[in-house]
Simulated scan of single mutants.
Amino acid sequence: MGETTRITVTLPTEQVAELKKLTDNVSGYVAEAVARQIRHQLLGADLRSYEDEHGSFSEEELAEARARVAGATESSGGASAA
């Protein structure tokens, strides 16, 4: 993962209980969730920038993108694309 920094995060008690049921590595789980959210936001910004410059995506382009995402998700073992 590289260099790390310790921080304190406050979460609702119910979320912490569910999180501990899912993993023994809470820091790793949270780090992956944060990384996924950052990728999502950066991709959204890139897509908006592209559309601002080139216009809206066509239905054909959107269908091709969805098919590629579905294919990538299937080949990675069904991980969530979100």
Score class of each variant (00 low, 15 high):
80 S>F: 07
58 S>M: 00
41 Q>L: 14
26 V>A: 03
46 D>C: 08
20 K>T: 11
35 A>C: 07
41 Q>P: 03
43 L>G: 07
26 V>M: 06
20 K>V: 09
39 R>N: 10
13 T>R: 15
10 T>Y: 13
53 E>S: 12
62 L>G: 05
18 E>P: 03
68 R>M: 08
79 A>R: 13
32 E>P: 01
65 A>I: 15
70 A>L: 12
74 E>N: 04
71 G>R: 08
4 T>A: 10
20 K>W: 06
53 E>H: 08
14 E>G: 05
34 V>L: 14
47 L>D: 04
21 K>F: 05
11 L>I: 11
18 E>I: 04
65 A>G: 05
42 L>G: 09
16 V>R: 05
82 A>N: 14
30 V>Q: 02
53 E>M: 05
63 A>Q: 13
28 G>Q: 01
4 T>P: 01
65 A>K: 06
66 R>E: 08
52 D>S: 12
41 Q>N: 14
58 S>T: 15
39 R>D: 11
51 E>Y: 07
60 E>I: 08
46 D>Q: 11
37 Q>V: 01
81 A>V: 02
71 G>P: 03
69 V>K: 06
39 R>V: 04
44 G>L: 03
65 A>W: 11
24 D>S: 09
66 R>H: 07
50 Y>Q: 05
16 V>E: 12
45 A>Y: 11
69 V>E: 08
47 L>I: 14
76 S>K: 10
10 T>M: 09
21 K>M: 09
13 T>I: 12
26 V>S: 03
26 V>P: 00
7 I>Q: 12
48 R>Y: 09
37 Q>W: 11
73 T>E: 15
19 L>D: 02
2 G>M: 04
53 E>A: 12
34 V>M: 14
2 G>Y: 01
58 S>P: 00
34 V>W: 04
48 R>S: 10
